[in-house]
């Protein structure tokens, strides 16, 4: 009798999960398998001819290509240069916002507002600011007390990398701040009260209570922000379309796009996307292991 109820409940559970499974299968799993199969061929995007099976030739080509390794470098620089500051600053800002007595909502809204803009709109706004005659030069010159210095936000190899990081940081900081605020709110206030009674100051509370209890949120934010950074595309795409040099910011996704759409080599582009998928999967697994996953106890 008991087994019958469980079976009935399980059936309902399966029914509710099925749409999500079907969605995942159709829009995530199938494209991954399809991309892997395509990566083993020399398929060209416009060709109506049946593509030849070339085995792992595309992967061999990529691993020997300086252009691909430059993309790995550009992606690594962008990811490290963006996701680490994102993680640290969003946590610090969330901590300060949580401690504010007034104006929490307004500050949260102000931080979050760039996140609702599309990446393309964000990049266009920043393009006008980073123009040699734009606000970025004017602001920095006023700040440094210099005059007429062109900081070459889009023209110099180093600065254009920094500019893409700046856009991404500005766009996503609010999103992760909100997640951290939610995480901070889930820590029972009693724990802090007990620590205060025991004589702990604010920094000790932060180091001994907040950080350990926030571990699942930190793991979530670090994985999410890293994956976002690895998938970055529109900022780099729009910057290169607007005259910025391509090589310094030719991240893997941009290289995939150019190889597939501009060069028509969809087989090679698929191989690159599979490599990116494996990199993302590997980093996620490592981060989950390092952060200790979801386990936390009060």
């Amino acid at each position: 009798m008991h087994g019958g109820i469980e079976r009935k409940l399980a059936r309902w559970g399966i029914a509710f999960v099925m749409p999500a499974v079907a969605f995942f299968t159709l829009f995530s799993f199938y494209p991954i398998v399809s991309a892997f199969i395509t990566s083993l061929t020399n398929r060209k995007i416009l060709s109506l001819l049946r593509p030849d099976f070339v085995g792992f030739k595309n992967y061999g080509y990529l691993l020997g290509s300086p252009d691909f390794w430059n993309s790995i470098r550009a992606t690594a620089v962008f990811t490290l240069g963006t996701f680490i500051p994102l993680l640290i600053f969003s946590l610090v800002i969330a901590f300060f916002i949580t401690g504010m007595k007034r104006g929490q909502r307004s500050i949260q809204l102000a931080y979050y507002s760039p996140a609702i803009l599309s990446s393309v709109v964000a990049a266009v706004i920043w393009l006008s600011m980073l123009d040699p005659r734009g606000l970025a030069n004017q602001f920095l010159n006023a700040l440094l007390g210099t005059h007429g210095i062109d900081h070459r936000w889009l023209a110099s190899s180093t600065m254009v990398q920094l500019s893409t990081m700046l856009v991404y940081f500005w766009k996503y900081i609010g999103y992760f701040v909100i997640i951290f605020i939610t995480g901070l709110a889930s820590i029972p206030p009693g724990v802090y009260e007990a620590a205060t009674i025991d004589g702990a100051n604010r920094w000790q509370s932060f180091g001994r209570i907040t950080l350990p209890l926030l571990r699942p949120t930190i793991a979530f934010v670090s994985i999410m922000s890293m994956l976002q950074c690895l998938k970055t595309f529109s900022t780099q795409y729009l910057f290169t379309q607007s005259g910025a040099p391509g090589a310094p910011i030719n991240v893997i996704t941009l290289n995939i796009y150019n190889t597939g759409i501009r060069d028509h080599l969809i087989g090679r582009a698929s191989a690159m996307s599979i490599i990116l998928f494996v990199i993302m999967l590997g980093f996620t697994a490592v981060q989950l292991r390092v952060s200790g996953g979801e386990k936390v106890s009060y």
């Binding site: 110099s156 190899s157 391509g246 090589a247 501009r262 060069d263």
Partner: peptide, 16 residues
Amino acid sequence: RMQELVKEAVEAVMLS
């Protein structure tokens, strides 16, 4: 793609 390669060379000397 050929145009892109010329672009890379010009950008390399002009900007990089």
